[in-house]
Nucleic acid binder design. Structure first.
Lengths: 339, 339
DNA sequence: TGAAGCTCTTGAGACGATTCAATAGTTTGC
DNA sequence: GCAAACTATTGAATCGTCTCAAGAGCTTCA
């Protein structure tokens, strides 16, 4: 409404708009007296700079879009927190968008971000090889893939999910389990496919002694984990696996609830290991073993790469940063049979 | 870089920029033949509308800022999810900002949002009577307070926290507890103060038979809950309360962990009730009793009020919407002594 | 005294879209 | 056959800021 602009400030301070702009952007080149008058006018009018106009002129805004698969998953919240911490130090804003694992929503968010001419996009894509990626970059929006290794054309930060799956699988096998279920989402999600490949290789390494079942769901939520847990609990004890490796901690928490509500003890009747090591994993009904990812570091590194690409487009070389996951052992995989 | 603009499209389609704009905004007034030519040009050039320029002209953007106290708290994520669902239907974007309970960060986020000329701001303020509120509104940015009753000058959505505290207190007293600790944050946070006032009144209603202790912390996090839990667990059994009412579920989860690590049984040695009823409460080590708030509904209602205010500034009357909380009883407050 | 070299300030021209009055071209009605 | 009415398109002004060449006013020094 009553938004005052630079012109009114100029009028009140009896200077030109150019001078007001100088006071705002390079105060040192304006004489102290004038500067003071302008500051007073700004204060009196309650003038607030219009970023929209600034950025129209500048061509790009100081905003970064962060598109995640699921805001309800604390893993992504932590990634966002890391990114925001770095952004804060660079006078940059992070806009958090939730694709909720839906390509349509993802596409709409990207369109909006591109229309806003954001400085760049950090994204955990719904699909492994997103078709829009190349075009978006070609039109001038830098992209950093998060928690998803790039095909080489872009920057990316990721954790070695295959190794993570292998670690989890090896841990369960070492604990004496011979019948393991992988509780995952759709293999179209790269992370899920990799974690599955990892556990599969661990099982293969055991040389035929271990059996691996698979249960998948469209999304990686607590509710889906619970649903799969119900199905698994309903199996006759002879067919039921003795351990579950869940594609993330959300599913593991749901799976755990299903065990409890069906009277199955964890880890005695069913050992469970999750993935991500979100803070809630340690506080679960049975503290969850998990595969830890450096969550905040992922976010920090992603935005670092983006800022580097934006500030030095010439020297910048796309890089794929890979972190190592860690095994965190808690009660949910405590030994239950003497080996 | 190579961002094409409306002028290039016009050139390629051999029409004026005005016509391209018309195709984009009121295609029905353009002849089919011309329209087709323009669409082809748009496609060929990969033209993406520049929202920044649009909004400069329009004066305001279709973006709403949502400033929350703690993104790590799933309560706020759910509020955000509700708000975003409504925003989606109105071609509006929600920018999620985290004040992390810090006035400085809050201020910076608000400055940025105001500079961006957002349509409006939804905020759970750090302080009860934020000094910036009046000025922000006076300068033309509508504000809706979330989970915090307005002083009457603005719209707000909130849950009756006093009632919630009372319900929680009454429940614990009814379960036979005579020594209760309120585990809260700083009373400068309105919600905390109200919940405390509620439990205090419930205790008062019991007529001197019940004792209420208080432990406060600067923030309402899992870590703080754990820290307070450690202190409480260290008390000699004779002085130790038998029940805890935590200002939110995050603290309750931390408190619960401290009990477990100190060998205290929940609810036998210590009953616990939280607040918010986040999804993780049901999945905790001991499923948590809690006071449920209509989380998504808060978000939906808040943005509804904002959109109404923006679209019909004349007819709009500021309203304070208050929801009722519900008691959710789970194992953490199961009866431990026959009454 | 006048040229040269300062320091400040100015004002016009972007940036990319929208909007609207004006116009050109077509059809209708009498 | 000509005015009126309508349709489709144009072009210029506008939003609020930044940038930069140009100018104004002052000091310095030969």
């Amino acid at each position: 409404m009553a938004t005052t602009n630079i012109k009114e400030v100029a009028q009140l301070a009896r200077v030109s708009v150019g001078t007001v702009s100088n006071v705002l952007n390079r105060p040192e080149i304006v004489s102290p007296a004038t500067r003071e008058r302008v500051f007073e006018a700004i204060k009196k009018l309650g003038f607030v700079r219009n970023e929209v106009a600034r950025h129209l002129r500048a061509g790009r805004s100081r905003t970064v879009g962060l598109v995640v698969l699921d805001v309800a998953n604390p893993f992504f919240v932590d990634v966002a927190t890391g990114a925001e911490a770095v952004a804060d130090d660079h006078d940059t804003m992070v806009v958090l968008c939730n694709s909720a694992g839906d390509s349509g929503r993802e596409r709409r968010h990207l369109d909006q971000l591109e229309q806003q001419r954001v400085m760049g996009v950090l994204i955990t894509p719904v699909e492994a090889e997103p078709p829009w990626l190349e075009e978006l970059v070609a039109r001038g929006t830098p992209v950093v893939l998060v928690d998803s290794p790039a095909t080489g054309l872009q920057c990316s930060v990721a954790v070695d999910d295959r190794l993570g799956g292998q670690i989890a699988g090896a841990h369960l096998i070492e604990r004496g389990h011979r019948r393991i279920v992988f509780v995952g989402g759709p293999p179209s999600i790269k992370q899920v496919a990799d974690r599955q490949a990892g556990v599969t290789s661990a099982v293969a390494a055991a040389g035929g002694a271990v059996e691996l079942l698979t249960a998948t769901s469209p999304t990686l939520t607590v509710a889906e984990g619970r649903a799969i847990g119900e199905r698994v609990a309903a199996l006759p004890p002879s067919e039921r696996p003795t351990a579950a490796f869940c594609a993330n901690d959300m599913m593991a928490l749901g799976f755990l609830q299903a065990m409890a509500s069906n009277g199955l003890r964890v880890p005695a009747d069913m050992a469970i290991i999750g993935y991500d090591d979100i803070d809630f994993a340690a506080a679960a009904a049975v503290p969850l073993s998990s595969v830890r990812q450096p969550r905040e570091l992922l976010g920090r590194t992603a935005i670092d790469l983006l800022l580097e690409e934006v500030s030095e487009p010439e020297e910048h070389r796309h890089r794929q940063v890979i972190f190592q996951p860690d095994l965190v052992i808690r009660d949910s995989t405590a030994p239950h049979r003497p080996i």
